[in-house]
């Protein structure tokens, strides 16, 4: 009923969800073995910066959109340079790609016939 079989693999979300809940329960049990002496708001939970006080976080301290995956984008910069140059935003180029693909499809279809 809920399961899905592709003929060689099986996916059952209900079983998966039960397993997920089971793992959660186990992790809570493990967590309960932890140190009971933990207290919030004391020196225990302060960030340790070589003994210095933690500087105040200002409103601007936020990892903004383009900061994430900066390294990945930089690593793929050779690809991204080309693909950005490809998206020119000019309508004539949009149409040119359409006509180009049309021509290619014609060639393939005639050859395959």
């Amino acid at each position: 009923m809920s399961g899905l079989s592709s003929g060689f693999g099986v996916w059952n979300p209900i079983a998966w969800a039960l397993l997920f809940v089971g793992i959660l329960v186990v992790s809570f049990i493990v967590r309960s073995f932890g140190n009971k002496g933990y207290k919030r708001g004391t020196g225990q939970t302060k960030v340790f910066l070589s003994g210095n006080d933690e500087p105040e976080a200002s409103g601007g301290l936020h990892v903004r959109g383009d900061h994430l995956y900066w390294g990945m984008v930089d690593g793929l910069s050779a690809y991204y340079r080309r693909v950005k140059a490809w998206h020119t935003g000019i309508l004539s180029d949009y149409a040119a790609w359409f006509i180009g693909v049309l021509g290619l499809v014609f060639v393939i279809l005639v050859l395959a016939r």
């Binding site: 998206h87 020119t88 935003g89 000019i90």
Partner: peptide, 10 residues
Amino acid sequence: DVRKVKELKG
């Protein structure tokens, strides 16, 4: 000019 109307790109 179609080449100048391209604010939506990239």
